[in-house]
Design a binder for these strands. Structure first.
Lengths: 146, 146
DNA sequence: AGTGCCTACTTCCCGTCGGAGAGTTACCCA
DNA sequence: TGGGTAACTCTCCGACGGGAAGTAGGCACT
């Protein structure tokens, strides 16, 4: 690939994002979205469960609502996760000056496109839990006691 | 849930797996698969790229091969990740007593079912990298300097 | 015989990250 | 003035990940 304009190079670079490479930006992105709380936040911010096949529409949720739904998340991690997702443009943060201030979060279109995958992960985990548990038992019994 | 056989309880538990609950086993599973290295290992252990639309067949790879492909992974994390994936029955570990011992890893059917999702994540990251980068710039410029 | 090397780990040290929980701000109402 | 609530923010600390060096054991070369 010798003679090439900058634009062409850029276009090719875009096409060549490869998360397998340590220094590729997409690696950092994959790292960020490969996160328990990111997955759960994105899964939560779609419809609850009405459309198991379709992706589901974005659903705006309040901070406290998310905190309740994602049982066990610390406030620190929830805030931190939401901030990074907002920064990446996956969701929007809206402050409404009500009695005590109300903050709502809602998926953007970009976020919605990830939502499908994340919901897929969640569903996969719930679906294959039994198999996994069985495999673990087998592994621990068979190979565990060397 | 008073009178119930163990089998009934198990059946109900299966139906009620919900990764949103902190104490649900599927939460732990989601936590485990929401991992940078897990995602990359699973993505790597499918065909390289020949069938961008189809999932791709499982491809057995050697330890050193994985180590090379997943640039930047520490041996410790690679071993650790592979072990946990083996324990969960997502891949098989095969030791061949060749010159220096050769260890190959290959996806099981269960692993293959996750492979699709992981590849999806990786592709998503590579595809939307530009948007994300743009959003970050915008965010850092707009909201960064309060 | 001894030295070296190769693969696939394992061990140790240490910096960073996540969890727990208390504190803070801002506003309204009694 | 005191209390209550939502959405954080701060602090401490233990656990986890990365880097690098050490290990096993079998062949190959000198």
């Amino acid at each position: 690939m010798p003679t090439m304009t900058a634009a062409q190079k850029r276009a090719q670079a875009k096409a060549e994002y490869d998360a397998f490479l340590a220094n590729c930006p997409s690696r950092q992105l994959l790292d960020r979205i490969s996160d328990k709380w990111v997955a759960l936040v994105l899964a939560a911010l779609g419809s609850d469960c009405p459309h198991p096949d379709g992706a589901g529409e974005p659903r705006s949720m309040r901070y406290s609502e998310l905190s309740r739904q994602l049982a066990g998340v610390s406030q620190k991690m929830l805030t931190q996760t939401l901030r990074s997702l907002e920064r990446d443009g996956l969701l929007t943060r809206t402050v409404t000056p009500t009695v005590p201030v109300t903050v709502t979060y809602e998926l953007t279109n970009l976020g919605l496109s990830l939502h499908g995958l994340m919901r897929g992960l969640k569903v996969w985990a719930e679906t294959n839990m039994d198999d996994i548990l069985t495999n673990r038992e087998k592994y621990d019994t068979t190979g565990g006691a060397t």
